[in-house]
């Protein structure tokens, strides 16, 4: 089997039972994507496959000959973070960090879906969905976060999508928090 993962070609002899998630985690040393449930219920394993977000625990590696796969490692590295990764740090869009790679990959896929004009269950305008709280919360609800950083995740995504309301940019929130502590 041949895959392109984070822009690099991989040839692997895979067990037909191996998911893309386990291929990455157990065979290729790419442990960024997490296994939270192995049943497509939590979203921690979210990757981008051919540009679309996918629960990688639910799809077998043998189904992906020649596919382009992007994991969290492919979005950005510690010293060269993707804007979404930076925004998650600035907004504290996580706590334990376990769901985080999946959240960020999912957010990247979601922003692309909005750009393409794909509507959701909560879109007011089916032809032109906007990047508001309801739209983000709806589209990100396949990614569980038990630490419950949801409000911060929404803010991080809005800021990257240039749709942060006044007072909810990372800088504005930091300033408000700092002021409260001093007071």
């Amino acid at each position: 089997m041949h895959f392109t993962i984070n822009g690099r070609g991989f040839d692997a002899d895979v067990d037909i039972r191996t998911s893309i998630l386990d291929l990455c985690r157990e065979h290729l040393g790419l442990t960024g994507a997490k296994k939270g449930c192995d049943h497509g219920q939590c979203g921690a394993c979210t990757m981008l496959i051919n540009g679309r977000r996918v629960n990688s625990c639910l799809t077998l590696a043998v189904m992906h000959q020649d596919d382009e796969i992007v994991t969290i490692e492919g979005l950005g590295q510690v010293d060269d973070l993707h804007p979404l990764q930076q925004a998650f740090v600035r907004h504290d869009g996580y706590q334990c960090g376990y769901c985080t790679p999946g959240q960020i990959c999912s957010a990247a896929g979601m922003l692309d879906e909005i750009t393409r004009g794909w509507p959701s269950h909560v879109s007011d305008d089916l032809a032109k969905p906007s990047l508001d709280d309801d739209e983000i919360a709806e589209r990100m609800s396949g990614n569980l976060c038990r630490c419950a950083a949801y409000p911060n995740i929404v803010d991080a995504i809005r800021e990257v999508g240039s749709a942060a309301p006044a007072g909810r940019t990372a800088d504005a929130k930091d300033a408000a928090m700092a002021e409260e502590i001093v007071a």
Binding site: L30, T31, E73, V78, L81, Q85, T100, P101
Partner: peptide, 11 residues
Amino acid sequence: GPSKVSGTATY
């Protein structure tokens, strides 16, 4: 944070 968001934190 950077290690968590880049998937390099080791669980």
